[in-house]
Amino acid sequence: MDFDFTSLFAFILFGLTIGVVYGIVALGISLIYSGLDIVHFAHGEIYMFGAFFGLVFSEHMGVPYPLAILSAMVCTGLLGIVIERVFYRRLTRAGGGYTVAGMGMIICGFGMSVVLQNIAYLSWGADAEPFPVDLGEPFQFGDISLPKSYGLTAVIALLLMAVLHFFLKKTKIGLAVRAVAANKDIAFLMGINVPLMISLIFGLACALAAAAGVLIGPMQSVQVEMGYLMLMKAFAAAVVGGFGSLPGAIVGGLLVGIFENLGAAYISPNHKDIYAFLLLILVLMVRPSGLFGVEVRVKA
C-alpha cells in the first residue's frame, strides 16, 4: 500500500478538531475534580443537554449558530449550578474524592446521569435529531477539504480555552477559583466565599460541556445517548493528560482525537471507539499519573 502523506495529514487534522472538543469536556471534568474533589459521572449528560439546548435555540427559535452556542452555555451552566446546589452540595460537604462519602458522590453522579437522560428522553424523544448548520463551502488545505463546521469547532474550542486561561490567570475571581481548587480552608481564611466559588466552578465546567455539545451537534447528530461515549472519551483524555491538570486535559483531548482517527484509518474503522482507551492504557503503563500529572494526591 502506498503511504499517502496527504491523507495522513487529513486524519491528523480531523483528529485535532475532534480532539479539542474532547479537550474542553475533559477541562470541565478536571475543573470539577480539582474544585470539588469529585469525579463527575453525569458530565456526559450535561454535554447532551447542552447539545439539545443548542438545537432548540438554533433550529426551533432561529437564533444564529454562534449565539446559540453562547445561550446553550449559559442555560447549561445555570442547570449545573442548580444541580450542584440542590444535590451535590450536601454530599460534598460530607467529603469528596477518596473518602467513604466520596463513594456516595460517585453513585450520585451515576444516578444523576440516568435522571438527566430520562428527562431528555421525555422532553425531546429518543430519535437522533439532525443539527444542520449551513456554514458555506469547506476550507481547502491543499488537497484536503475541511468542512467549515470542523474549522469553526476548532476555532471556538481554542477560543474558549484561551478565555478560560485568561480568566483563571488574570482575573481576581479566577485567582479565587484557583485558590479554592488548591485548598478550601485557606481560601476561606483569605475571605473567599468558597461555596459561591464552587458553584461557579461547577457552572463553568457545565458551560464548557455545553459548548462541546453544540459544536459536535452539526458533525454527528443530537440524541439522548450521546453523553455516554463523550464522557468516556473525555475521561480518557483527562486521565491521559493527568487528572486535575487543565493543560493536561487539553493535550489529552488532542492526543485522544488524533490517536482515534489514526486508528480508525490505519487499523480498523469498525472499532473506532476503543482507540481512546488503548491510548489510555498505554500512557498509564508508562506514566501512571498521566502526562502532566504531578504525584497522586492522597486525601485523608
Binding site: 481576581k172 485567582l175 479565587a176 484557583r178 485558590a179 488548591a182 485548598n183 480552608d185 485557606i186 481560601a187 481564611l189 483569605m190 475571605g191 473567599i192
Partner: peptide
C-alpha cells in the same frame, strides 16, 4: 485574619499571586 503555618501557602501559585489572594 488568620495566618496559617507556612506549609499552607499555595505552592503552585507564584509568590505575588499568593499575596493577591490575600487581598481578595
Amino acid at each position: 485574619i488568620q495566618v496559617t503555618q507556612g506549609k499552607d501557602s499555595y505552592p503552585s501559585m507564584t509568590v505575588e499571586e499568593n499575596l493577591k489572594v490575600g487581598a481578595f
